[in-house]
């Protein structure tokens, strides 16, 4: 499928990009960074805008400084960053499992935390959609997953975001009203169409990771049928702080590809703070989180399988992080 017609803008700074966005906002626009996700949707004629504002020429968001990651840093660059490999292993694990090597060389961290939600009934060609009728997120007013649903349940598919939420990372945004910083855990919404609280004019410029992350054990596990190409079917990100006596000081477990946003599990994990790590405890946490997980039937593997894998991944990840 050829790309639909659009006008491409190539600003050289964030400021200029925002200016352009204000000029064309009435016609509609998208920002595009790596484009690995957005352009595929464009080819499928999904929510195509007449203006594309490319962030490619913008230099100011391309570097990693300590724990501040420029939004235009590619996933491959993150995977190879020595500091992050040592102090934020979980993010390196998450980023190095996104799509394929070709995708990771192009896709950026800013794009990945903003990646569009995915659904079996949405990510399809125009002909496919006409043969049944499209869905809430495309051209229709009916959800094909749960027909009576009033909001979209398309699945949250970012690999990096669950890990960032697990360490309470912040996002720096810049838009027509200036800069602001938001908590990653407050950034996402339950609606698969709206997805997050980014204002239309805003661009993510930085991912700010708390310095204390270096004291945590972090890790990421993901199920996909193929070890490349595939989006996650289920993923688990965990950040643990364990004291000398092997007791849990702090624990965050965040699920990806289960609901419409990264799902935190404080209700479950808070119960175990102060307790000593043991196999039976890991089993209990995993079972509890699995029980709560409610995947929607909108990816290519059955709900029952994905739910079961929540427990398996939790158990594996916690075992791995506490073994060392």
């Amino acid at each position: 499928m050829i790309l639909p017609p659009f006008e491409l803008h190539n600003p050289n700074s964030i400021k200029e990009a925002i200016e352009i966005s204000q000029k064309v906002k009435n016609e509609g626009f998208d920002y595009v960074s790596g484009g690995t996700d957005l352009l595929q949707n464009y080819k499928n004629r999904l929510n195509v805008k007449p203006h594309l504002i490319s962030l490619k020429n913008i230099k100011e968001t391309r570097s990693i400084q300590n724990f501040n990651i420029g939004a235009m840093v590619t996933l491959d660059e993150i995977s190879k960053n020595k500091t992050l490999q040592k102090d934020f292993t979980g993010l390196v694990e998450a980023c190095s499992q996104v799509g394929s090597i070709l995708v990771r060389k192009t896709a950026t961290i800013g794009g990945n935390v903003l990646i569009d939600n995915r659904c079996y009934f949405y990510n399809q060609t125009p002909f496919w959609r006409t043969s049944l009728g499209a869905c809430l997120k495309a051209e229709s007013d009916t959800c094909r997953v749960i027909p009576q649903k009033e909001y979209c349940v398309a699945t949250f598919s970012s690999d990096s975001a669950p890990m960032l939420v697990a360490v309470d990372a912040k996002y720096e945004l810049e838009g027509k009203n200036g800069k602001r910083i938001v908590e990653s855990s407050d950034f996402y919404t339950h609606d698969g169409i709206k997805r997050n609280f980014k204002d239309e004019s805003e661009i993510i410029t930085k991912i700010k990771i708390p310095k204390t992350t270096a004291n945590l054990k972090t890790g990421y596990e993901k199920i996909r049928v193929r070890d490349t190409f595939d989006y996650p079917l289920v993923s688990v990100a965990a950040a643990l702080k364990i004291d000398k006596d092997k007791k849990i000081e702090n624990i965050n477990i965040v699920l990806g590809a289960i609901g419409t946003y990264p799902i935190k599990n404080e209700d479950t994990t808070d119960l175990f703070k102060g307790e000593k790590i043991s196999n039976s405890m890991i089993k209990e946490i995993s079972e509890k989180i699995q029980k709560k997980a409610q995947p929607y039937n909108n990816l290519t593997m059955p709900v029952s399988y994905r739910k079961k894998m929540v427990g398996v991944l939790c158990k594996r990840l916690l075992t791995r992080l506490t073994d060392s």
Binding site: S100, Y120, N123, Q124, T125, W128, S131, L132, V225, R226, D227, T228, F229, D230, Y231, T300
Partner: peptide, 23 residues
């Protein structure tokens, strides 16, 4: 195939999964 309509559900290389070279 969709059981009711007979439509191919996965007419793309993401959902119709061939073995990748890495495997």
């Amino acid at each position: 195939y969709n059981r009711n309509t007979g439509r191919i559900e996965n007419p793309n290389f993401l959902d119709y999964r061939c073995i990748p070279p890495t495997m």
